[in-house]
Design a protein around this nucleic acid. Structure first.
Lengths: 247, 247
DNA sequence: CAACGCTGTTGCACCATGTGCAACGCGCGA
DNA sequence: TCGCGCGTTGCACATGGTGCAACAGCGTTG
């Protein structure tokens, strides 16, 4: 692991939220002002960041350009996108696509209905394996060996009153998910957000992705989200079939 | 300038074109295999890159996520986008938005009509100041001092038979651009590509951006592109007005 | 089937680079 | 006018980044 590269990446994350001046960046990284400036200069030279007229640094156009250039590498997202859009429109809630990547489950796409409250999730960030519906929807359909390996680094930290903090209880819930075909997040990561999730299968029938419908409990609780299971199932099934899955 | 960060960024550029295995990355950077692997591991840990099942590394979802997160920082692109889209549709050619950033002119947006031949330009990359229409459209309307400063690092390298390699001839052409209000690239960077460009003004009347219509000479030469000057002017003017410019 | 070449991986010594520091100038606010 | 915070630069040095050696695995070739 390269400390210097990790710092540069953290700068990108930091200034993506909003443009920041070099002193803010130095404080955020807990490094000297001259160190922050040198890292910013390197990122700016390649246009991943840019210096605004007021001296603050924000994200540069090359970040957008690289994302655009690499679009065709996000093949699953491409395939899934129209189905996610339809599900988002039908459900009027936030829809996520998540993928198993190495030892993590990462959000691969996110669609939000117009005028919705922004949820915490961001494309590219990993989920809390023990608390996220999409993670349960994936882990439930993996081999016990794989599930064990993925959970090895999981500390079952309590986030809310409903977070599962006991490994055995969690594995029991995965058995339920396997039986019924869908998973939930019952305010386990944030107590005012819940979701329902279903696995996506690839051409070999393996589960390495999942799709979910997420809402504020105040807007739609689990009972309302349960009504959306048919639509969620249709989306998950359509994506799976387009990936080559034959049920 | 941080060599380590620059290497990591070069890896991102390299694998954005297509996924690559670590040995390819090491060769590309001219570093040891273990160095390449360590840099890739750092990028992968933060999901800027990801490891495919076949061992190759491609771009990761976090790159897309950061670009999405930072969307609102590209305010000029937002303002310009609808006008660029209309111009692209009307002209049926590639449309670029470029901005002056520090001592460089960088492509900020690019729209291509369906089924068009891909041109070399990429969002986030700098242009050759002496050979690009958008650069001339910007430099022509900057103060002589700024133009001198920007051209200080310019070596007027010949790219094609029509590249301007003499500084004084270039400055004379900038005077023409100023007089008539638009610039051209007459196959100066690539001999089979030409364009027409116009400056965009901000609220204070300053020129820090430009818009262009670009085409293969085989599809549309300068005479055909000249026909598009009214439409180009409308787009440039509409964007300028939306930025607060009052003519 | 053995040999070879290439790749991925890891631990480690070492050196090149990244780092913080000091100093300075500037701008801003009290 | 003064004090403070920030941006910037040159430099000494500490540390992290680097290449190397060794190993295992895999695919190809003879």
């Amino acid at each position: 692991m390269s400390q210097t590269v990790a710092r540069a990446i953290e700068i990108l994350e930091f200034v993506s939220q909003e443009p920041r001046n070099p002193a803010d960046v130095a404080r955020h990284l807990d490094v000297h002002r001259s160190t922050a400036l040198r890292l910013l200069e390197t990122l700016t030279e390649s246009a991943l960041t840019r210096r605004h007229a007021d001296g603050r640094y924000g994200v540069g156009y090359r970040l957008a350009g690289l994302a655009q250039l690499a679009l065709e590498q996000f093949d699953l997202s491409h395939v899934a996108r129209p189905h996610l859009a339809r599900l988002c429109e039908r459900s009027t809630h936030t829809v996520h696509l998540a993928v198993l990547e190495g030892d993590r489950v990462i959000y691969a796409d996110k669609l939000e209905p117009p005028r919705s409250v922004r949820l915490y999730s961001q494309v590219g960030l990993p989920v809390a394996l023990h608390a996220a519906g999409v993670a349960k929807a994936i882990l439930a359909f993996r081999s016990p060996a794989t599930t064990e390996r993925l959970l090895r680094g999981c500390r079952f930290e309590p986030h809310t009153g409903t977070t599962l903090t006991d490994r055995d209880a969690y594995l029991a819930q995965l058995a339920d998910v396997r039986a019924r075909g869908w998973a939930v997040d019952d305010g386990e990561f944030e107590d005012y957000v819940n979701c329902v999730a279903m696995p996506i299968r690839d051409a070999s029938g393996e589960v390495t992705a999942a799709v979910s419908v997420t809402a504020l409990k105040a807007r739609a609780g689990l009972p309302e989200l349960h009504q959306l299971l048919p639509a969620l199932g249709e989306a998950a099934s359509a994506i799976s079939k387009e990936l080559g899955w034959k049920p």
